[in-house]
């Protein structure tokens, strides 16, 4: 049952920013977002399995987060901004109902 964790796709609208600039992040991850409301062909409810939490940390500080419900589409898409304060790692984390995590990283240079 172990499938490799999907690799998220992340786009920052700038890699080099001036302090105080807004940086736009667009992120996608492959995930079925099984709502828990669908039935299989034998009429049994397919158990819920969704990404229920998403966070974006820059240099370890949370700049944006979201709690997701089954009404978020499959392959959840997140677009948001953060204010550039310092150079460092941009870490995006998707948390599955089963506790597993999908992590994606990028880098920002702030001058």
């Amino acid at each position: 049952m172990s499938t490799p964790a999907p690799r998220p796709r992340i786009r920052l609208d700038k890699k080099d920013a001036k302090k105080g600039d807004l940086v736009e992040v667009k992120a996608l991850v492959s995930h079925i977002m099984e709502s828990g409301q669908r039935k299989d062909k034998d009429g049994n409810l397919i158990p819920r399995k969704i990404i229920n939490k998403f966070t974006c940390e820059v240099n370890g500080k949370v700049v944006f987060a979201c709690d997701l419900e089954p009404a978020v589409s499959a392959n959840p898409y997140m677009q948001f901004k953060f204010r550039a304060e310092e150079s460092g790692k941009v870490v995006l984390t998707w948390i599955d109902d089963d506790g597993s995590k999908i992590v994606g990283e990028d880098q920002i240079t702030v001058s």
Binding site: L22, V58, K61, V62, V63, F64, A65, C66, D67, L68, E69, A71, V72, S73, P76, Y77, M78, Q79, F80, K81, F82, R83, E85
Partner: peptide, 17 residues
């Protein structure tokens, strides 16, 4: 969904599907 922001977000804007 519920979105969470802080001053570090810079703006309170987001998009999803």
């Amino acid at each position: 969904a519920t979105f969470h922001f802080s001053p570090r977000s810079g703006v309170a804007e987001a998009a999803t599907r």
